[in-house]
């Protein structure tokens, strides 16, 4: 194990985060600041998926459900109960995490494709519930397909930059912790050989649940931030499977179960879509599809994953 490289990367990571914290003072262009915020936002979200699926090998195909729950909790807390944004944000994370705890106990017993299908089904079910709940019970709570309009924040882009940055920072810090802790070795052991992990003393159920709940907690925070940012949510937006797909592709592209995988994958994909999207409005999705296919063919373990193997690095 090369702890020296690990330290250097940690210091670089802390340094970059600290430098980023001053960014809004220097960036004049609102567009640029918004773009940077979006990149950091996606790094965090892809990181949430990586935390669970990248390290344990359990392919979660419904992470968007916790994002959506976060959005709805913040919206309902603010509009129906008049709770200010930051407490509501926190409640979103806690409720997302709690739901993940309850859902994880039965679903994490499933293996492989069955787990993927179960999580996917749960996400779709939540979308349907928020759509149909009010009509079924003749109440006005989720407001079905009408959606909920949040109080206008009146904040500028730098406010959301400062919301997103610390959460993504925490997600990345959690990655660093996973890479160097007992918990993380438990997760990696589960990914490699679950029975062998269990008989070596790894409490596989608790470790998987830990990863699943932390991932959901952070996703809830991101969902809440986005809801407050765009101020209008509907079930089909916040529970959109497109978000799941994006998290998965970003992480695969960067490298599953690696520290820098989500960072590289999310940055790459967001910037590519942004630059191609502006120039080739009609074809850019096809082009992105092509780029993804080529990248995966050349680097089946993702950009960082392949680099790790080629350079025999243990941690990045």
């Amino acid at each position: 194990m090369n702890f020296k490289i690990d330290r250097i990367i940690l210091i670089m990571f802390l340094g970059i985060t600290a430098a980023l914290a001053f960014l809004p003072n220097f960036v004049e262009s609102e567009y640029l600041l918004r773009l940077i915020t979006v990149v950091i936002f996606w790094i965090g979200i892809a990181g949430c998926w990586n935390m669970m699926s990248g390290y344990t090998g359990y392919i979660d195909f419904g992470p968007v459900v916790y994002f959506g729950i976060g959005s709805y909790v913040v919206a309902i807390a603010m509009t129906k109960y008049g709770i200010p944004f930051f407490p509501s944000l926190f409640i979103s994370g806690v409720i997302s995490g709690s739901v993940a705890f309850l859902v994880g106990i039965p679903t994490l017993r499933l293996k492989g494709a069955y787990f993927a299908i179960a999580t996917f089904a749960f996400a779709e079910a939540m979308k349907q519930i928020t759509l149909e709940f009010d009509r079924t019970f003749s109440v006005s709570f989720f407001q079905g397909s009408d959606g909920i309009t949040l109080p206008i924040s009146g904040h500028d882009n730098s406010f959301f930059f400062y919301c997103v940055l610390p959460v993504t920072f925490l997600v990345m810090l959690a990655h660093y912790f996973i890479e160097h802790s007992k918990f993380g070795y438990g997760l990696k052991a589960i990914k490699e050989a679950e029975t062998a992990a269990e008989i070596s003393g790894v409490n596989t159920t608790a470790n998987k649940l830990g990863a699943y709940v932390s991932s959901a907690f952070f996703l809830g925070l991101f969902g809440a931030i986005e809801a407050y940012w765009i101020t209008y949510i509907t079930p089909s937006d916040v529970f959109n499977i497109q978000k799941t797909v994006q998290m998965v592709i970003m992480t695969l592209l960067g490298g599953m179960g690696t520290f820098l995988g989500p960072v590289i994958g999310a940055t790459f994909l967001t910037l590519i879509s942004e630059s191609l999207g502006a120039r080739f409005v009609e074809y850019y999705l096809i082009m992105i599809g092509g780029i993804i296919i080529v990248a995966i063919l050349i680097m089946p373990n993702g950009i960082i994953g392949s680099l790790k193997i080629r350079k025999k690095l243990r941690f990045i």
């Binding site: 070795y185 990914k191 992990a197």
Partner: peptide, 12 residues
């Protein structure tokens, strides 16, 4: 645990 070193295997 294939993707881990021998040391890390034992460490688990």
């Amino acid at each position: 645990f294939m993707a881990m070193t021998v040391f890390e295997n034992v460490l688990v």
